[in-house]
Amino acid sequence: MQLIIEAIGFGIATGAVIALGAVGFSVQFGISNILNITYGSLMTLAAYVGLLLINHGVNAWLALVLGAVVVGVVSVVYHRALLAPLVRRGTRAIAMVIVTVSAGIILQYVIVSIAGPESHSYGEQSGSTLHLIGFTLSAGQVAIIVLTASLMLGLHLLLTRTTLGKAMRATSSNRTLARSCGISTDRVSDIAWLISGSLCGAAGVALAITTVSFDFSLGSLFLIPMIAAAVLGGIGQPYGAMLGGLIVGVSSEVAAAVSNPNYKDVVAFMILIIMLLVRPRGLFGAAWSTRRLMEG
């Protein structure tokens, strides 16, 4: 029993990182209707930017902020320079996925050719161990849970309380209508890519902080739980992705605790496949997300 409670605590920490990534992924999909697989490699980029900074004596949490900013800016440029023009040229959605996969591979191997294929580590960043209501977590894990919670709250306030947030939601649900209402959709999508890219960067550095060691495949492996979380929550919906991240995190840690740890990712995979076959619009599927995913 204690084992399971500890696994749940771990799961919340894992889920927090997954949620960070899944929310960013969902925001991108919502705003631009592109399934951006490059996202995984951009997380890897963030982890290596963090590594560079930490090796130069920067504090891990400052490295997280800087990594987030760098990847946020890179994401905006990437969308502006490659994805948006391709969409304007009428490239089909299926080709867009191939483009984002290709770009992800390019980025991944650029990273390898600079940083090498070997594993890296941030060193001991976890700090002391804390005991909270039966959970045993490192200070680093707690910090990441708090960070995720506050970023999610911030995003929630942005989306609901600000004009910018309303413009983002309007653009997300109907771009043409939003434009005819005088919303500068290009500017809104730049900001959305900046925010989502920053979440991606933060998730990448956070993942590197919580894992023992990582290499260039960090992001591509993370794609499975992240997409599972996004699909679970109804892809394109930030709130669903938050909850989806928690569900995927907790269920895979619990499964790993009670069975073979090697099969941790299998749980995320099973969730994804079952959702795709049974309820592709997500658990809480709103009507609009159904329309976006189903053909016709």
Binding site: A93, I94, V97, I98, I235, P280, R292, L293, M294, E295
Partner: peptide, 8 residues
């Protein structure tokens, strides 16, 4: 499903 979704 959408083709890009299937691909992913």
């Amino acid at each position: 499903l959408r083709q890009d979704y299937q691909a992913v």
